[in-house]
Amino acid sequence: MTSEDARQGVYYAEATARQQVPDPLNLCIYATVALVTWLLGPVALAGFAVLGFAGYWRARRQGLRRSRCWLRDTRLVLGYLAVLAGVGVWALVW
């Protein structure tokens, strides 16, 4: 059996097909986050915002200045997440 024959096998075809089809994992993650947010409301908003803020704060301290987030600048992202956390806490108290 040559290497060419081995590449024509079932497993090679499946691996090639898997590489060509994008995995919409992000959409599943977004749907799960939306579900948790819908179920827990302000608690989820405040929690996810604080978690995101902590992650971006740590990344900024390690040197990240530009994010793939739509806001790009990590200072803007931190401000946005701080506002979201504040709104979540306000909604909990109110």
Rank of each mutant, 00 (worst) to 15 (best):
R61A: 05
R58Y: 04
R75P: 02
Y56A: 08
L64D: 09
G63D: 01
R58E: 04
V50T: 15
C69R: 04
L78Q: 04
R75W: 10
R68Q: 12
W57G: 00
R61E: 00
A54C: 12
L71Q: 10
L64R: 14
V83I: 13
L78M: 10
L64P: 00
L81T: 08
R60A: 15
Y56K: 06
D73A: 13
G55T: 10
V87L: 12
G55V: 08
L76N: 07
G88V: 00
S67Q: 06
L71D: 08
Y80G: 12
W90D: 02
L51D: 02
G88C: 00
L84P: 07
L81Y: 01
G55I: 08
C69M: 14
R65N: 09
L64A: 13
F53K: 03
D73R: 15
S67R: 04
W70V: 15
Y80A: 15
A59G: 04
V83G: 13
R66N: 14
R58T: 08
G52Q: 04
R60S: 15
A91W: 09
Y56W: 06
T74Q: 09
R58D: 05
L76H: 02
F53W: 15
C69A: 15
V50Y: 00
A85R: 01
A54N: 03
A85V: 05
A91F: 10
R75L: 12
V89S: 04
A59Y: 00
T74D: 07
R61V: 01
L78F: 03
A54I: 13
L51P: 03
R61P: 00
R68V: 04
A82P: 10
V77T: 04
W57C: 01
W70S: 06
A59I: 01
A54D: 06
G63W: 02
G63M: 01
R65Q: 14
R68H: 13
L84E: 13
V77A: 01
W57T: 04
G55K: 07
T74F: 12
A82D: 06
R68F: 11
G79E: 04
V50Q: 02
F53C: 10
R58H: 03
L51M: 09
G52Y: 02
R61I: 03
L51F: 03
Q62P: 03
G52F: 01
L51E: 04
T74W: 11
Y80T: 14
V87T: 07
L84F: 01
R75S: 13
L71T: 04
R61M: 00
Q62S: 08
R65Y: 11
V83L: 14
L84N: 12
G52I: 03
G88M: 05
A49K: 08
S67W: 14
A85E: 11
G63K: 08
S67D: 06
R66C: 10
A85F: 05
G79C: 11
L71N: 05
D73E: 15
R72N: 09
W70R: 06
